[in-house]
Computed example of a mutant assay.
Amino acid sequence: MVYTMLDKATLLPDLLRRLDKLPQGHALDLRTYKRNRSVLIRRIGADAFDVTEDGFQKERFQVPFSGLKKLLKVLFKREFPRSTKIRLYALGAADGDDLPTGRKVI
């Protein structure tokens, strides 16, 4: 699992570039600094993504790459309203049951 901190101002273009290159079955986990809210993005097909929101609201979306930018803008405003830095975890190949849930323990 690879971890980086990204500035919220440059997060969306950088994230879309990473998601475009993401292999099928791999996932990215975006969390606040306190790790209490997250947005999990997993590639499930050539042009399909499974987005799980776990924070103020708990929802699950399945969208194509073309609809990802609009959805992520809405989710970032809702889940990371005052954050300036976002934690990005590259989870690698993970099945739906293997993905982390809840607060990450150090």
Rank of each mutant, 00 (worst) to 15 (best):
S83Q: 15
F56E: 14
A90S: 06
P13D: 14
P64A: 00
R82M: 13
T52M: 10
V74C: 05
F76T: 09
L71V: 07
Q62I: 00
G55I: 03
R82A: 12
T52R: 12
L19I: 05
I44A: 03
L19F: 01
I44L: 04
L88Y: 09
R43M: 07
I41L: 09
Q24N: 15
G25K: 13
R37Y: 11
K77H: 02
R43Q: 04
L91R: 13
V74I: 15
D50K: 04
E59W: 04
K69G: 01
T101C: 08
E53Y: 09
L22Y: 02
I44Q: 05
D97P: 08
V51L: 00
Q57E: 11
A46D: 09
D54N: 14
G45Q: 07
L19S: 02
L6E: 14
L15H: 07
T84V: 07
L99C: 06
L72W: 05
R18Q: 14
D95W: 13
M1P: 13
I106H: 09
F80W: 10
L68W: 03
F49N: 04
F56V: 08
K85G: 03
V105N: 14
V51Q: 00
L91G: 10
A90T: 07
N36A: 06
K85R: 10
R42Q: 15
E79M: 09
A93S: 15
D47P: 02
Q57R: 05
F61S: 02
L19G: 03
R17W: 09
Q57S: 03
I41E: 12
D7T: 05
L40F: 03
F80Q: 11
K70S: 11
L72A: 07
M5V: 13
L75S: 01
T52G: 04
R42V: 01
R60G: 01
R87Y: 07
R37C: 13
V63P: 01
P64M: 01
T101K: 10
A9Y: 06
F76L: 15
D97I: 13
F56I: 10
G67R: 02
R78W: 00
D50N: 08
N36L: 14
K70A: 08
S38I: 05
G55L: 02
A46T: 12
F61R: 01
P23G: 12
A93M: 14
F56D: 11
N36M: 08
Q57C: 00
D47N: 12
S83R: 15
